[in-house]
Nucleic acid binder design. Structure first.
Lengths: 296, 296
DNA sequence: TGCTGACGTTAGCTCTGCTTACGCCTGGAG
DNA sequence: CTCCAGGCGTAAGCAGAGCTAACGTCAGCA
């Protein structure tokens, strides 16, 4: 039988992206982790990691084993919670994983309410960008994951977890105040093809979405500034450096003073926001999920 | 995090019913097993076993942990199989658990066919009486379980496994050849209340079923001979010592020479036979299940 | 070409975990 | 009642697993 400790180590290394990183998180020396992984590979009979000069990546066998490792670690933690619950030793801790913009908009209100009602519960927040995070829910590093999908991006395999649509959030077009195109009644992507766009780097879902929209409209957009941080995008637009699509929620309730908010007639993207948790969530998870679902 | 090895040990001890028994199966000394269990109890923070003079039984916490232990062991074995399959190292082994009478009737034909088509696959057969066996499927000690339910007996929690009804098998009333009551056209339980009955000991599902039937008919039956072995029951009836209900299949295709087979008009019990296996069975399991399902 | 950061290896020590030996307890046979 | 068998637990000792520390190796970079 495979060794669960070593599998847990594999999961940790996969998440950290390097042996040294995992070792640090676990308060071990890299050597110890390396040796244990070597033994796991001997047990399995095949290499699990590609040793790159900068960190490691998983082989196909390693990938396959990783998903199992995560469910096993999750089962071990579930077992632990079961007996804790039987012994009335509630650990009272809730770890929520969010993507950056949700962490600034959706989550704080729910978190504040939750904290008011359950001051004894230790709340932890983790930043994760999709499609990461599912494995951490499987392994119970995370109690609740808030994740999203941009149009066209694939929806990851739920791996036996419970996933529900929290809401669908449309994107708005933002322009600097007084921008020439802001006066146009019916804005289209085609009409905006000549502008300087602000978006994420290639590969970031944000950017992929924008390029897909442009393809659909038959135009080619020029991305003049690259950043994945929506707050930075807002600042750049405010400074008159370009235009962008941003999720409605990052605009805030009151809106921004020096920004014009419009819609493109031929491109109305929206991202879906999902809640992911274990099949039978505890009461704390259920309550937090309910708070997040409540319209604000 | 709990130690998976110790949890596996707990499962082994629970199945064996004693520390010494588990130790023998695992080729350890009882002392080693005892020490590991003591450490597991310290980890958990609560006793898991009642130490009886003859063997051990689980505490409620132990029971709860056992089900988790079984799924964890099962997950570990699943992980192992996944990588074996990726590396094309099929272990080619199939372990089937059956109850005694199925082992003599249902299974042999299917097993023979299977062996003919897959001579390289190692077949193992385990005898188990319901409601045991589900845990062994969870922990992958068993690939396929054939189990049954007598009328009125509770159906165990499937625990995330796949359970399908294989068939429903009625019971027939058997009497010694030339028995006075064998001439009666319409036999009833009430009319047979004065006879010597042959059945299992109290607690055996067989016996519980008989008593329930008697209650329903408003009579009290006298069990003169107790045995759970249907072959022995047949022999006793042949010898003229009493009458009994037996599953149809134990009568064999040709029937028995010195036995009269009848039905009771007011009591026509039947037991349900189930197939239990993991959610996503491998091809060998699927094939064996198909063979068993085929009417003979 | 030297420097940095990451991984791997080796030697050595600590500590886990097994065995052996022994004691305690209960239930059944004589 | 006594004795014995079978079960569990504890103590001491030893082997091996697993960690640390120190050093070696390699790729990328100035």
């Amino acid at each position: 039988m495979l060794d669960a400790h070593r599998l847990a180590l594999l999961a940790e290394v996969a998440h950290a992206g390097s042996i040294a990183g995992a070792a640090q998180r676990l308060s071990f020396t890299p050597s110890a982790v390396s040796q244990q992984l070597a033994k796991l590979e001997r047990d399995v009979g095949a290499p699990l990691l590609h040793r790159n000069p900068r960190g490691v990546t998983l082989t196909p066998v390693g990938e396959a084993l990783l998903t199992h490792a995560e469910t096993i670690v999750g089962e071990l933690r579930t077992a632990e919670r079961t007996v804790r619950a039987l012994l009335d030793e509630e650990p009272a801790q809730l770890t929520v994983g969010t993507f950056a913009s949700a962490g600034m908009t959706l989550v704080p209100a729910a978190l504040a309410e939750f904290r008011r009602d359950h001051p004894a519960v230790a709340l932890r927040l983790l930043d994760l960008e999709p499609p990461d995070g599912y494995g951490l829910v499987s392994s119970r590093d995370l109690d609740l994951l808030i994740t999203h999908r941009y149009p066209g991006a694939p929806l990851p395999d739920p791996r036996g977890l419970d996933r529900s649509l929290l809401r669908s959030e449309r994107f708005r077009l933002i322009l600097p105040e007084g921008h020439a195109k802001a006066r146009v009644r019916r804005l289209t992507l085609r009409a905006l093809a000549g502008e300087d766009w602000i978006s994420g780097s290639p590969g970031v879902p944000n950017r992929a979405c924008l390029e897909q929209l442009a393809d659909a409209a038959g135009v080619r957009l020029r991305v003049a500034y690259e950043t994945r941080d929506y707050q930075v995008i807002l600042a750049l637009v405010e400074a008159g450096l370009g235009i962008a699509f941003v999720p409605e929620s990052v605009l805030g309730r009151a809106g921004r003073a020096r920004i014009e908010v419009r819609d493109a007639a031929d491109a109305r993207p929206a991202r879906e926001i999902f809640l992911v948790h274990h099949r039978r969530p505890g009461p704390l998870v259920t309550e937090m999920a309910a708070r997040l679902s409540r319209p604000q």
